[in-house]
Design a protein around this nucleic acid. Structure first.
Lengths: 226, 226
DNA sequence: TCGGGTAGTTTACATAGCATTCACAACGTG
DNA sequence: CACGTTGTGAATGCTATGTAAACTACCCGA
């Protein structure tokens, strides 16, 4: 049976105990790059990531393991206190979540369901919006058929904006959701990246990213409804 | 926003109450075939199915709606007692599950995640009043279908007025609630912004903002007619 | 019905604040 | 060291906003 990846290392004692009790083989890691170096022969079946609410490290971890070749699916363990506030706009980072404290039956069923679902590769991996096409698997983007040569941050920023078309995001929100840290000082950073994106989109399509003065930026056409 | 399908009919009172509280439109059905006949114009966004443990009717229901053209995704509501025993080997019947009794935060996040995963988007916060439509997520406004190009303060002011239709606000109140600082001197500021708003609404609709002499301003119809 | 006073509207304008742009420093990588 | 990526600070240009002042509408008493 394939191994479960557990974060962080050392893991929550309660979690370790329950996994042993349920008979799931697991291995705890502290950094995402260990997912390669310490990968078991038969690969990872999924991941359980504990979010302790005081930092974004767990989100960074999720983001990293979803980008790997095999797209490890994270089950996020989180306290109810952090639930609504911290998961908002982060739907893409986890496949399922559990509310701490752990309950053995729920853990068992959620794990089973997660492994069953990933066994058939159910994932959204294309973003298509107007002339823009992003392939999240291959990390490629194209506008009106012409390939875009984007850097890492440019890609992440465009991906985030384009997966919430129409919605306006403040610089602070973008910094925390795309860059993943709390903002100290550099709101200009966002502007500059927006500028570089617009430049690469070309005059034809730069209108896809709109400025909403004294609020933030928005991707896409004027859309009503969603 | 698209409608949630709820089973059974009548639904659990607690569920109905929470859905209303969260602002999700829903419709309860008793049989799967009603999913076609009673389908809303814009389709179903997903389903919440209550499993009461004494029969398999809920599973039958899930199976049926997953086979439909649009593959409605069921969120199963189940008691912990039935969890392990009854869900075993039925992974294919549901997309996610919730353990009764319901907890509002968890319901909210699971619904959001379900709708995100199936690509049904998130509900937009809208203000709709007569010919006026404001989308608070996208910072857009339209009057009688025609987009309004509002500046930040204009938007904020109109948003405040339109979210309390009929109510009269003094200039002082508007300054402190919309501008957010304690008023020093400039009550004319409000007048000027009202004026610019009326100009952008156009002759057709400027009556939406009414002056109440020596009191303040009001949005929308006087509830006594004129 | 007239006139004076008060309250609201409209115009015009100066400027603070915001977005954009540029240039460069810091950093990691081959 | 050369190169590409990313973050930051400063200069620039623009426009949204607040304020003053002129103008108009309304109310009320004589």
């Amino acid at each position: 049976m394939e191994t479960l990846l557990v974060y962080p290392n050392p893991p929550l004692p309660a979690l370790a105990k329950l996994l042993d009790h349920l008979g799931y083989p697991w291995r705890a890691l502290q950094t995402p790059d260990r997912a390669f170096t310490d990968e078991p022969d038969d690969g990872w079946s999924g991941a359980i990531v504990y979010h302790d609410g005081s930092s974004d490290a767990s989100f960074t971890f999720c983001r990293a393991i979803r980008k790997t070749e095999q797209k490890i699916a994270p089950l996020l363990l989180i306290t109810e206190r952090d639930l609504v506030r911290q998961l908002d706009l982060r739907e893409d980072l986890f496949d399922d979540f559990l509310i701490a404290p752990l309950e053995v039956n729920e853990l068992e069923v959620r794990l089973k369901h997660l492994l069953w679902r990933t066994g058939r590769g159910i994932q959204a991996e294309l973003i298509e919006h107007g002339a823009l096409l992003m392939n999240l698997e291959t990390y490629q983007a194209a506008i009106a058929g012409r390939p875009l040569d984007l850097t890492f941050m440019e890609y992440e920023l465009l991906k985030f904006l384009a997966s919430h078309p129409g919605k306006v995001f403040s610089r602070e929100t973008l910094l925390s959701r795309v860059w993943g840290y709390e903002y100290y000082g550099g709101a200009r950073t966002v502007d500059v990246h927006i500028r570089r994106l617009r430049a690469k989109l070309g005059e034809q399509h730069e209108y896809l990213i709109q400025t909403v003065r004294s609020v933030g930026y928005r991707f896409g056409q004027n859309r009503w409804g969603s």
